[in-house]
């Protein structure tokens, strides 16, 4: 049974456009080589995304190919890859938009675990360090997934006006796809750099009217490994698939840190 009979009238059937050649990075941990590229011929049509192509390779040519994918609609942030040298979401990149031979590689600036899969743990550590949750006025956290809400936060719902929501809504669009880290030259130089997405998330909560954790977050942001390695190249904002503008978030955090520094100078002499 068709889910939507009307859609069939509006959506043209995918057209077979021939075959594309994909050069796909391969890596095996503990192997004798640091990685290599395998070349695959993939049939594609108007609707074939890079994820579709990788899945086709896995099903028809090489079942050992490893890559991350989940939602296929630019929401989950799993399928970030270097496609033709640029960080892009594989689900939003169509094979027809690439050249006759396209190179697919894992995200830059991350350690590779296997083939196209990178180690996200350094980012997850950075994200956790900025307290990515609404901190209550007594320093407690509101409910996190899988954990019960602490009483102080669970009594009253945190109501907001539309302007209060607008203050952080852009930064809340981050899907943690890590394209910004792959684009950031400083993320490559400084392994401990907090980075664009974690800072954007910190600012998302700092700008939330219900949150009281800005002071604690500043202790993480205003450090040599926090916001200061950023030299405002702006590549993070250019590649962001959700229009988050993490470069702006970092500049906002710098301004707050500079203000705090000036305040400390006045109050402590």
């Amino acid at each position: 049974m068709s889910a939507c009979t009307g859609c069939a009238d509006r959506t043209p059937p995918p057209t077979n456009l021939g075959k594309a050649t994909l050069r796909v990075f391969r890596y095996r941990p503990g192997g004798l080589v640091n990685g290599w590229h395998d070349t695959f011929e993939v049939p594609y049509g108007t609707n074939t995304s890079v994820i579709d192509a990788l899945q086709w390779i896995k099903e028809h040519l090489d079942p050992t190919l490893a890559f991350r994918a989940s939602c296929r609609m630019g929401i989950c942030g799993s399928c970030g890859l270097m496609i033709e040298g640029r960080p892009r979401l594989a689900c939003e990149t169509f094979v027809r938009t690439l050249g006759s031979q396209a190179t697919i590689e894992p995200l830059a600036n991350f350690a590779v675990e296997r083939d196209l899969v990178v180690d996200k743990q350094p980012f997850l550590d950075a994200l956790r360090s900025v307290r990515p949750w609404v901190v209550g006025d007594d320093g407690t956290r509101a409910a996190e997934p899988g954990q019960p809400a602490e009483p102080a936060q669970s009594v009253e719902p945190g109501r907001q006006t539309p302007p209060q929501l607008m203050k952080y809504q852009d930064f809340a669009q981050c899907i943690n796809c890590l394209l910004c880290y792959a684009a950031c030259p400083q993320a490559g130089f400084e392994r401990g750099f907090l980075g664009p997405a974690a800072t954007a998330t910190a600012m998302r909560y700092n700008r939330d009217s219900r949150d009281h954790g800005a002071g604690k977050r500043l202790e993480v942001l205003d450090t040599d490994e926090g916001i200061w390695p950023c030299t405002f190249v702006g590549a993070c904002s250019q590649v962001c698939p959700k229009g988050v503008d993490p470069a702006a978030a970092i500049q906002m955090a710098k301004l707050i840190a500079a203000g705090r520094w000036a305040k400390d100078m006045v109050s402590h002499g």
């Binding site: 360090s129 401990g192 450090t223 040599d224 490994e225 200061w228 710098k254 301004l255 840190a257 000036a262």
Partner: peptide, 18 residues
Amino acid sequence: MRRRHRTNEPARWALFGA
């Protein structure tokens, strides 16, 4: 929690911005 270091960069950056 990762170990982090305080910095005097805010002062230098503020003058840079000015």
